[in-house]
Simulated scan of single mutants.
Amino acid sequence: MSWLLLLLTIALVCGSAPVFADDDERYMNCMNSFDCGNIKGVGYPFSGSDRPDYCGYPGFELGCSNQDPEITIMRSTYKLLGVNIQSRTLNVSRSDYTANLCPTLLSNTSLNPNLLNYTSDHAEVTMFYGCPSPSPPALSISQFTCNINDTVMMGYFITANLSLLSGTAPSLTSYLTTCNNSVKVPALQSAIVPILDSPTVAQLLEAINQGFELVWSTNDSLCDACESSGGLCGYNRTTTAFTCYCADQPRDFECSSSPQAPSQSTSMSSFLS
């Protein structure tokens, strides 16, 4: 009886092994989504948390700090407010302007245009720091004071393009160019409208904290073909190329129903059709 039980156990173990052997580890890992705070179910082109870096595209690594999702873009950290996979857009805000207009490091927002671009609902607010005091009495612009690195400085902000003001307000343009620094912070055009009627620091911070929208472009057509074939999109950091993770093994473009990988010409013709 014991021999029969032993043989039955061996048969069950051996019989179940191929089920797990056929599942590629990278495919299984890329099934995980990024979840942090109110951001749930985020997949390609993003990596982070339970998603290894090969599950996302370079430059789209996400972090989670105290249930606050964040993303680093060109070495600057942004709060991640929302992701729309269907429209391939994300909403982010400058982390250094969450509480006030006086960050320790004054830097403009910069993007890699090959990966990210602003949507049509885009506007910019320009902050000027270290401006001469007192300002000319004729200037009616919004003023604020900062203490940055133990240096107290006067600042101003405008929601219009400075070059457009040169014709209508030359004295304002001339004065602002004498300030030590200027920083452009993106915002939604719709969020800027209330500032035109009430140009206060509180209104400006509220607009900045609503974030701004970016649209991404990361092998989108290849990813669509990969997912249509039952695969999961990823990126090979060694070959620096798009990879389609399939249940059995990674492929260049899309998964195949047969054990053999499809030829490159076959996959590419399928992608182009």
Rank of each mutant, 00 (worst) to 15 (best):
P259Q: 07
Q260H: 06
G234H: 08
A99G: 07
L196F: 09
G56T: 03
L214A: 07
G59I: 09
N108D: 12
S221W: 06
G82W: 08
S49N: 15
S198P: 00
L12V: 15
L80M: 11
L139P: 13
S87F: 10
S163N: 06
S267I: 01
S270D: 02
T126Y: 05
P134D: 12
Q260R: 06
F128C: 04
S93D: 04
S163K: 04
F46Y: 06
Q189K: 14
L80W: 04
L81F: 07
N91Q: 13
E25V: 04
Y118A: 15
I195W: 00
N32I: 00
S273H: 09
S33F: 10
Y175W: 09
N32A: 08
S49E: 12
T98M: 11
D24R: 12
T77H: 00
L164P: 01
K79G: 13
M1H: 10
S87Y: 10
I73A: 00
A187L: 14
S142K: 11
T72A: 07
F60V: 03
N84Q: 08
F128W: 04
E61N: 11
T126K: 13
S133C: 06
S87V: 10
P262I: 02
A21D: 10
G63Y: 03
S198N: 13
L165P: 02
G63H: 03
Q260S: 14
F212D: 01
V185G: 05
S258D: 15
F242D: 03
V92D: 07
A99S: 15
I85P: 05
N32P: 08
A187F: 05
I141F: 11
L196Q: 14
G230K: 03
L90S: 05
T240H: 15
V183F: 06
L101F: 02
W216S: 02
C246L: 07
M154L: 14
T177I: 03
T238E: 09
I39T: 12
D150C: 06
L172Y: 00
T72V: 14
P250K: 11
S107G: 03
R237V: 05
K40I: 14
T109F: 04
N112R: 12
V125P: 02
L62C: 10
P18M: 04
F34C: 02
D24W: 09
T218W: 04
T151M: 13
F212R: 05
N149K: 12
